[in-house]
């Protein structure tokens, strides 16, 4: 049910009543439903990179989207930022603050989405920063661009943004190549935080970093979630996900196959989808055994469950696609009895 005295500017936020009417603070920052992305390739081939992804993300919450390379998780991130190439088509909705990101045109995306609604913490900060300009000048430009601040206010706000990302003020006048990997990551995070976007999107923020730096980066991201941002972290690093996430979404062959609370996922009772279990069992601190086989091509997905070919529990039922029910998209969800 929609509230009767809703503010005029927020009337697009909800179309149908969902569950119980929630106070604004509990409204999802990001509401993704039925999001699909496909690429049209030469020769009429189609690649179903993301199929029917649905999830919500609230303030102060961190959702880790995990999966192997090529499973479609980065495509999902690009879709949310409106950065898909021209041969992509999307379906479904991804609503942030009443705006459907998938339907927005480039002008809207550039003026009201990137940096303002969605802040991007990039995969490789050194490539994200302009090499020929100091961190301060890049921060100030972003502050000016996003807030319109000028003069001394500009300087103060840039320094405040650096401080929020724990970027040391005495390094502000350095160039990106003079920064360590950790500091470059913080500089990029500072840029992402300038617009005070309700949604932070971290795309593989820990790739190539060593464990200590992964932990530090992840802890800092967690701090921003605790400060009230909604955080969507895309990663293949399960240890990083375990450290930061409130909830975990496992993606396989373009579909979310498991969406569950992080403590239940990494601890007891553990994941229910056989793929998610296999992924955890592949960790060196666990069984260290790979899942047999390889994921199917996104351009030639089977008509049924995409994991069936690698799954020890597959039956004829698996010739149809399982829907995501109670957080697991599997015809034979595993019961919480762990070996």
């Amino acid at each position: 049910m929609t509230t009767s005295s809703r503010p005029a500017c927020e009337d697009t936020r909800r179309e149908g009543g969902a569950g119980a009417p929630l106070p604004a603070a509990d409204d999802p920052v990001l509401d993704v439903s039925g999001l699909s992305v496909r690429f049209r390739m030469r020769g009429g081939r189609q690649i179903a990179a993301v199929t029917d992804a649905s999830f919500r993300l609230r303030r102060g919450e961190c959702l880790a989207l995990v999966g192997e390379s090529g499973c479609g998780k980065s495509v999902l991130a690009s879709a949310l930022l409106g950065l898909l190439p021209a041969n992509a088509q999307t379906a479904g909705r991804a609503v942030v603050g009443g705006l459907d990101l998938l339907a927005a045109d480039e002008r809207t995306l550039a003026r009201t989405v990137r940096g303002r609604r969605v802040g991007l913490v990039p995969q490789s900060p050194s490539a994200h920063l302009t090499p020929v300009r100091t961190v301060r000048s890049q921060l100030q430009e972003t502050v000016r661009e996003l807030t319109g601040a000028r003069g001394s206010g500009l300087r103060a706000r840039a320094e405040a943004a650096a401080e929020r990302a724990a970027f040391p003020a005495d390094h502000l006048d350095r160039y990106p190549h003079q920064l360590s990997g950790g500091l470059a990551q913080r500089a990029a995070t500072a840029l992402a935080l300038v617009g005070d976007a309700p949604l932070l999107l971290a795309d593989e923020p820990t790739t190539g970093l060593d464990r200590d730096l992964v932990d530090r980066t992840v802890d800092e991201l967690r701090r921003h979630a605790d400060a009230g941002h909604a955080l969507l972290m895309i990663t293949h690093d399960l240890a990083a996900a375990e450290r930061i996430a409130d909830r975990v979404a496992v993606m396989y062959a373009g579909r979310i196959v498991e969406l569950t609370d992080a403590p239940a996922f990494f601890g007891e009772p553990g994941p229910r989808h056989p793929y998610a279990r296999g992924l955890l069992d592949a960790l060196p601190e666990r069984a260290f055994t790979p899942i047999p086989g390889m994921p199917p091509e996104l351009g030639a997905l089977p008509t049924g469950c995409a994991f069936a070919a690698r799954c020890g529990h597959a039956t004829t039922t698996c010739e149809t696609v399982p829907a995501l029910r109670n957080g697991t998209a599997c015809h034979h969800p595993q019961e919480p009895t762990r070996a």
Partner: peptide
């Protein structure tokens, strides 16, 4: 889509 967070209005593809 039947997300864990509750029912979501149907979205045609």
């Amino acid at each position: 889509p039947d997300a864990a967070t509750g029912s979501v209005p149907e979205v045609p593809t």
